[in-house]
Structure formats: C-alpha cells, structure tokens
C-alpha cells in the first residue's frame, strides 16, 4: 500500500477547494441576481407577483437544502433530462441563496422609515425614483453586513453537494479518506480549510456592522 504524506492530502484537498470556491461564488452571485429580481417582484409588483415570491421564499426556506439538491439532481432526471452534478448543485444553490437574500433585503427595504417614502412622494418622485434615489441607498447600507454574513452559509451549504457527487472540498475529503485511511487528519484539514474560508467572511460582516453603527449616529 502506498503512503500518503500530509502534504499529499492537503494538496488534493486544496485542489478540490477551488470547486468549493467557484460553486460558492456562482451561488452567491447568481443568487444575488435572482434575489434582487424576487425583491422587486415582492415589493414593487402586483398581487400575483407578491404572492409568487412569498411562496417561493417559504418553499426554499421551509425545506432542507439537501432535499432541494436531490430534487434538482434526481427530479430532472425523471423527465429524462440528464443533469450533471455540477449543474444540479449550481441550480439548487442559486435558487436557495436567492430565497434567503430576497428575504434579507426585503427586511432592509422595509426598515427604511415610512416617512422617507412619504417625503419623497410629496416632492413629486415616482416609485422608481423613490427606490433609486431614496430607499435603496439607505437599504443597501443596512443590507451589507447581513448579506456578507449570509455568504458564510452559502460556503457551508456547498458541502452538501458532495452527496450528489459533486467533487468539492467535502467530497474530496471522503475520497482522500478512503484512499488514506486517515479520517481524522483528512477531516481535520477539511474543517480547517472551511474555517479559513468562512472566518474572514464572518469577521468582515461583524466589522462592517460595527462601522455602520458608528457612522450612523442617531438624531
């Protein structure tokens, strides 16, 4: 039997980490775009689009991400569509992220005082102008810390895609363990790498929040 040095293990894990990072970025950016669309449908649209986004959010927040991954992977297969693991993982994570971001952002828009809508309306602004110049600039500022904070959940969420066979960090951990029979070392390293990815994100979220609170003294 072949011997594996810790370096061999780490190298293999780091190679797979690339896919964790790529999948996280795709999910976060894609989820951000879809989430923004949902947000506009939710607060600016008619009754149907509001209802649609509400059910969408409830559905994706109310079911485990793992089930969503299974459904994307196996469900589409039932219709004869052969979905590769990376695509199913990407779709499920984008849709899941979108639901959470839309909800986080909706809270931020609603946190903008009602008086801001009224003052801008009384000055003659229409809905789009109110949004663009008055509401969103204020909402975005509040939204940054929780959005960055949620990116941590996205990174950790990518670990589940190992179950449908996408080879990212967690899956690589399993594969390497099976080859080396050193589960403690391998999963220890896997955990460390996740920590190295997530810790800066949650720290910067906290720092942003502190900075924002300091910059936003009350009247």
């Amino acid at each position: 039997m072949m011997e594996f040095s810790t370096w061999d293990i780490l190298r293999n894990l780091l190679l797979a980490t690339r896919w964790t990072i790529v999948l996280s970025l795709v999910s976060f950016l894609g989820g951000g775009i879809v989430g923004a669309l949902l947000l506009f449908l939710r607060i600016g649209g008619n009754r149907i689009s509001t209802a649609f986004t509400r059910y969408y959010v409830e559905l994706f927040q109310g079911t485990p991400l793992l089930m969503q991954l299974f459904l994307a992977f196996f469900g589409l297969g039932l219709f004869g569509i052969n979905v590769p693991a990376w695509l199913a993982a990407g779709i499920a994570l984008v849709l899941w992220t979108a639901a959470f971001l839309a909800e986080i952002w909706r809270g931020c828009v609603e946190a903008v005082a009602r008086g801001q809508w009224e003052a801008s309306a009384s000055l003659g602004m229409g809905y789009v102008q109110q949004m663009r110049y008055v509401i969103l600039p204020q909402a975005l500022k509040v939204a940054i810390p929780p959005t960055v904070g949620f990116s941590v959940q996205v990174v950790k969420g990518t670990a589940l895609t190992s179950i449908i066979g996408f080879v990212e960090l967690s899956k690589a951990g399993t594969v390497v363990t099976n080859a080396t029979f050193q589960p403690f070392t391998v999963y220890g390293l896997v955990a460390l790498i996740y920590f190295a990815l997530c810790w800066p994100l949650s720290k910067s979220s906290q720092a942003l929040e502190r900075k924002l609170n300091a910059a936003h003294r009350n009247h």
């Binding site: 801008s120 000055l123 204020q138």
Partner: peptide, 25 residues
C-alpha cells in the same frame, strides 16, 4: 409638504436633500 418628523434623506447632505428632487423630478 412639511412633516412633523422632518423626514430628511439621511444619506444626503443638507444641500443634497434640497438638490435631489429638483434634478430628479
């Protein structure tokens, strides 16, 4: 209309508050 709670736009300066609706509306 002038409101009890002023409702100035907090992300803009005093000048910015007075300029915004002129340029936008």
């Amino acid at each position: 209309m002038i409101f009890q709670q002023f409702n100035l736009f907090p992300h803009l300066t005093a000048g910015g508050n007075v300029i915004l609706s002129q340029t936008v509306v």
